[in-house]
Design a protein around this nucleic acid. Sequence first.
DNA 1: GCCAACGTTGGC
DNA 2: GCCAACGTTGGC
Length: 136
Amino acid sequence: MNYWLVKSEPAAYSWADFTRDGGTDWTGVRNYQARNFLRQMQPGDLVLYYHSVSDKQVVGLAEVAAPAAPDATAPAGTDWVAVRLTPREALPTPVTLARIKQDERLSQVALLRQSRLSVMPLRPAEFDVLLELGAG
DNA sequence: GCCAACGTTGGC
DNA sequence: GCCAACGTTGGC
């Protein structure tokens, strides 16, 4: 079991959109490092859902429902992938970026160290802390 | 609106 | 292969 965090601009595709759809293929990733993480995802892995830009907080918990497969939105001949994600639950208390920054236990998270990466792994301990903070 | 980070593109 | 220019992301 691995743990991940994905980012989305709420204006583009929000947690509300995601839950309304009952899940989605996580398409559109066009960064090699992020793609490599998508490829490592396994069904059942847990994924925190972060709203970037306008919201800047972790808002929900999702799960990998299907492993990496060719991204149908990518041009033919390219090798981008998408995974299927389904929602589990909204966090009772969204975890803000400010809160993350102030918690020593989260000082190494990729979200802080590599702000532009849109798909990233979380250490189990980091995932636990985020869920705990999100529980309120 | 600005700017830092950083990935990509293209000229050489 | 190097590197400057440029575009995008995302925090402030």
